[in-house]
Amino acid sequence: MPIDVEKVTSAPPVRAAAVWDDREVRLYHLALGAGVPEADPAELRYVYEGHERGLHVLPTFGVVAGGSGGVGFQVFDLPGVDIDLAAVLHGGQEIIVHRPLPAAARGTTITRVPAVYDKGKAAVIVQESTLLGEDGEPLITQRNHIFVRGEGGFGGDRGLSERLRAPDREPDLVLEIPTLRQQALLYRLAGDWNPLHADPATARRAGYDRPILHGLCSFGTAVKAVTDRLLDGDVARITECRTRFAGVFFPGETLRLRVWETGDGYRLTATAADRDDAPVLTDARISPGPPSPR
C-alpha cells in the first residue's frame, strides 16, 4: 500500500528550515489578490514594505513560509508515504496563531503525522506542523487533512466528523471577490509546485477540464477579506482560523463569501458565483482576539 500507516505515524518529526523575507510576504499577498486598488493604503499595507505602519503579514502566510508550499507539506518526504499527486486533494486546514508573524525570519518547522484515517474510498492523512521563530518559540501550529483518493479501505479508524455549520439565518456580510485567470500560477510561487494547479494534462487526469486554484489560496483570500472588512485590517487579532475545502474553484471565477458574526468570532462559507454557488469552503471560522495597541 502506498501509505504505510504504522510507518508514517511512528516516524520521528521532520525538522526543516523555513527562511523568508518581506519579498516572499509581498508576493504571497499579491497571489491572494492584494494591491487592488494599487494606491489604496489598506492594500499597500500588504504589499509595500515602506508602509507607515510596517508590512502586515496575514497568519495564513505561515503555512507557506520559507517557500515550502505549506509548512506541513513535508509529508511527501516522510517514510511510509508514496502517493500520486493527481490523487491528492487538500481536505481541510486549521491554523492556531501563537503570536504575529514577522515579515522576515529564519525559522524552523517541525512536522509529524499523528493519524491516517480510513474513509472507505480514500485515506486522509492528518498532518501537524509547528512553525518556530528565530527564538525557538512557536509562531503558528497548523493541521491539514490530505485527502488521497483510492487509498482507503485498509480497515483503519474513520476519525471524527467535526462540523462547523453556518448559522440558519441570512449572513451578516456577503462579498464577491473576483480572481485572476493566472492566480494559480501566481500562488505556485509560494512553493506549492503541484502540477494540478498549472498543467492541463495533470488536471484532466485528476478529472478536471483545466487546472484548479489551490484551496489555501481561496482560504487566504477569504481570511484577508474578513480581516479587511471586519477587523480593520488588524492581522494580529486573528488567533485561529480553519476551513473545510468542499469543492474546486477555477482561477478567473468570482468567489462569493458569506460571513456570519457569532459569539466565538465569524463563521463563513465560500462558493463559486459563476457556477450556481457550487461549494468551495465550508465549516470555516475565524476567531479574533482584542484589537492590537495602536
Rank of each mutant, 00 (worst) to 15 (best):
D4T: 09
A222G: 04
R26L: 10
V64M: 15
A34N: 03
H145T: 07
R244G: 00
Y187K: 14
L175H: 08
L231G: 03
D283P: 00
Y208H: 15
T282E: 11
L255V: 05
V19S: 13
I3P: 04
W193P: 03
D283H: 03
F147R: 01
L231R: 01
G265P: 08
R256G: 07
N144E: 13
P251E: 08
T111A: 05
P59V: 08
P291M: 04
A236K: 01
A103S: 15
T254Q: 12
D234V: 02
I146V: 07
V148K: 02
G247P: 10
A18K: 00
T141Q: 02
I238L: 13
A18E: 00
I286L: 15
F154N: 08
G50N: 05
L101V: 03
R143F: 01
L85I: 15
V148G: 03
L281H: 04
Y187H: 15
P290H: 05
I96D: 09
S161L: 15
G54A: 03
A65W: 12
I3H: 02
V81A: 10
R267W: 04
G91C: 02
Q74C: 05
G265F: 06
T282M: 05
L164H: 12
L55E: 00
T254M: 12
P167M: 10
D228I: 02
G66M: 14
L186H: 14
A39W: 12
E49K: 00
R158T: 15
T130S: 01
D40I: 10
S68M: 10
I110C: 06
T130H: 01
K7I: 06
I286R: 02
W20A: 06
P290F: 03
R165I: 12
R169M: 10
S68D: 02
T130P: 01
L268E: 06
E162R: 14
G91Q: 00
T269C: 12
E137A: 07
G67V: 14
G156T: 06
G152N: 03
E94H: 00
V259N: 12
G72D: 11
G289H: 08
K7A: 11
C217L: 10
T111K: 02
G263F: 05
G62K: 08
P293D: 08
L30Y: 01
L160Q: 15
L231F: 00
P200C: 01
T141V: 04
F250G: 09
D84N: 13
F76C: 07
N144R: 10
D277K: 09
W193N: 08
V174E: 07
L132H: 01
L231D: 00
D264A: 11
H29L: 03
V88Y: 09
V8A: 05
T254Y: 11
H145G: 10
L173T: 07
L132A: 00
T141I: 05
S161A: 15
R205P: 08
S161G: 15
S287A: 12
L230G: 00
D274I: 04
W20R: 09
P293I: 06
R15D: 14
P2C: 05
E240D: 12
A86C: 13
Y28A: 08
P138I: 01
A31G: 11
D40Q: 07
G66H: 14
G62T: 05
H197L: 13
S218W: 02
D21T: 07
A104F: 04
D232N: 10
A42S: 11
D157Q: 10
A34L: 05
P290N: 02
